[in-house]
């Protein structure tokens, strides 16, 4: 079983390669020597107890935090780009999108303006001072909203939407620049079980269509088990296990450090 999983990962092209990543905050080692890879088109779950270093890893890949050591390379090994040292903006321009644990959208704007904003930025048209923004990239924005099922809500203020819909808006925004890799920080936090499944099913459909890889953190094990191609488990800043869902699920160290009996989640 594990052999099969290894085989399937090796056969994929590597999209993101994280090597020897380390970071400490004021003497506390939050992440120590983390290695993992995300394959092209893969949905990889990064799980572990609170404070295990998941968010720190995310923020280092995203460019928000600069690692003390290690490398993060994007693209297949022949011509990959080093992400360490780049700002979040540059990382985004290289094709790494992101969603946040608490959906981050532009609260004063309409749904479609949120998406138009991302499209304007992608087209490098932010410093246009004259032509009204509302007419620009409208068709493309509507297409994206249609894909996440929000075409009918396009002109509503985003502040009036239900939380599940806000999450979908964020997804549309994150997909606007056709990213190669999407980082999702606890995508289903604060959602009801059915909403979780719907959001992840939608995510999977969209990324498969677009050939986008996903790296996500998650505490809800039903989501991880149902949607992850592979799992990386962090504890105390180190990778303690990685592999297929089944393999990780049965790993005794993971049970002890993270799952417990698994009865309640």
């Amino acid at each position: 079983m594990t052999g099969q999983a290894t085989h399937s990962t090796l056969s994929r092209t590597v999209l993101l390669s994280v090597r020897g990543l380390a970071k400490s905050f004021g003497g506390v080692q939050a992440v120590r020597g983390v290695d993992f890879e995300v394959g092209a088109g893969e949905l990889l779950a990064l799980i572990g107890p609170n404070g295990a270093g998941k968010s720190t890893c995310f923020n280092m890949i995203n460019g928000q935090i600069r690692p003390d050591q290690g490398s993060i390379r994007l693209g297949n090994p022949d011509h990959s780009k080093e992400l360490v040292g780049l700002t979040p903006r540059k990382v985004w321009r290289l094709g790494v999108g992101r969603t946040f644990q608490i959906a981050a959208v532009f609260g004063s704007m309409s749904v479609i303006e949120n998406v138009q904003m991302a499209l304007l930025s992608h087209a490098r048209e932010l410093h246009e001072f004259w032509r009204p923004a509302r007419a620009q990239h409208r068709a493309q924005a509507l297409e994206l909203l249609d894909a996440v099922g929000l075409a009918d809500q396009a002109t509503l203020p985003v502040a009036t939407l239900a939380y599940g819909q806000v999450k979908a808006v964020e997804l549309a925004v994150a997909l606007a620049n056709q990213p190669r890799l999407l980082l999702m920080d606890e995508p289903t936090a604060g959602m009801a079980p059915a909403e979780r499944v719907a959001l992840m099913a939608l995510t999977r459909r969209l990324v498969t269509e677009r050939g986008t890889s996903v790296l996500f953190t998650e505490h809800s094990m039903d989501v991880v088990f149902a949607f992850a191609d592979r799992v990386v488990v962090l504890a105390r800043g180190e990778v303690i296990a990685q592999g297929s869902v089944t393999a990780v699920r049965q790993d005794p160290r993971v049970r002890e450090a993270y799952f417990g009996s698994g009865r309640l989640t």
Binding site: F100, M109, M117, L126
Partner: peptide, 28 residues
Amino acid sequence: RRVLDAPFGLALRAGRDSPQRAESIGIN
């Protein structure tokens, strides 16, 4: 007024609403 309605004005509001989101879609 015109500038506020233009992409620049929208980007300005974006930075106010959620600097985190704005930075992560490439807005400086």
